[in-house]
Write a protein that binds this DNA or RNA. Sequence first.
RNA 1: GGCGGGAUGGCAGAGCGGUUUAAUGCGGCGGUCUUGAAAACCGUUGAUGGGGUAACCUAUCCAUAGGUUCGAAUCCUAUUCCCGCCGCCA
Length: 428
Amino acid sequence: MLDIKLIRENPEMVRGRLASRSGNVEKLLDDLLEADERRRKNLVEAEQLKYQRNVASEEIGRRKKQGVPTDDLIEKMKEMKEAAEKIKSLDGALREIEDTIRTAILLIPNIPHKSVPIGKSEQDNVEVKKWGKPHPMAFEPKPHWDIGEALGILNFECAAKITGARFCLYKGAGARLERALINFMLDLHTKKHSYEEVLPPFMVNSASMIGTGQLPKFEEDLFKCNNTDYYLIPTAEVPVTNIHRDEILDGRNLPLYYTAYTPCFRAEAGSYGKDTRGLIRQHQFNKVELVKFVKPENSYDELEKLLENAEEVLKLLNIPYRVIVLCTGDQGFSSAKTYDIEVWLPGLGCYKEISSCSNFEDYQARRANIRFRETPEAKPSFVHTLNGSGLAVGRTLVAILENYQQADGSVAVPEVLQNYMDGMKVIR
RNA sequence: GGCGGGAUGGCAGAGCGGUUUAAUGCGGCGGUCUUGAAAACCGUUGAUGGGGUAACCUAUCCAUAGGUUCGAAUCCUAUUCCCGCCGCCA
């Protein structure tokens, strides 16, 4: 959520900076500014009445204690009864205005950072680095679904029976490889990169979803549990960022780094016919997430470090990738700046997103009310939050199958994973 | 699921219709003492919104949302969460 004062004081600047994003927020901003003006007018009026009431009530109390109430006191109580009615109606109107403001401001996206390229769609994203060389293959590389089905480690048909489309049953070495990847990533981030491991709930309430920005705008992307206020998480970002919702952190403890493995659940509304085969786009997938709470002045350095931590996974697995910075039009709703890591998939013949690393600045912190004090006596201010996939596990498994496939249909196990697979060197 | 108890400031904990601007303790901050520190003593101590150039003024906040009243932390209703006991259960 943006700072209402920033919008009030620099409406044209905000309008300009948001214009390059997807979605039109002109009307929302107009409604917001208009309601904000009404709110302050209404507030002043209600406050004056409350002040009068407080003064009168105190006097009534004092004099009642002294003795029998006189006529003028009874008169005063009558007057205050009327004032109370007026206050009630003003407060009611105020509540409505504040609802209007809240509805509008929750639908306004974050302002892109100055370093973000202006653009309309993914065509305008900018590549910032490329790492690794495709493994030499003296044969036509196959897509991962062919490899996985042939080895008997992935079964999409069976998952379709159990549940439906966009699910997968992992078997044997496939299931083991997925678990190996989760452990490998968690070990790397906890031991080498000093993140604290957490295992959060996989369902969250609507307040948490609002805090990180999934609600109210993107409800159709989520799975909601019937007759409850609970949603399946679309990413660990939601429960982990909300660990500190409504808290004031001690600045001396910042930055805080968390890593979490969770499954992720996405409705994928509007992506019918997209990536229909294989593991790329599933309703359920595993992910190891990195989340940071940092001081504002460090957040862009922290974003670079977060990106490096995620890249490290692919480097150790020796799989080629590139990093792109998303343009203003392609960026997520809550993000100020986002890097995507895209992994090379020889079977599909393209680069595919495997991680998304974002700095949200104070946008989520405002929504979730996450603050810190620089020193114990300082005024609280908002932290900056960041997160990134470190990595999407299902897509990493895809990358291993496609990059490590061999002419005979077997798949070599990357060296760093062999210890996690009881020494297994090849899946055949 | 049933019955009972509870939710108060960073923490602990009193208050149960009117000087409560929420007692007291711990913690934090400042000071005295000390070569320095500790202890002791003294003082101080929250959040959010609004108004004002400012000092400052003001409203709101005792789980959440409503209600009663001139006046609510305190009374009423609903909800959420926590803690017991019973039932069920991985």
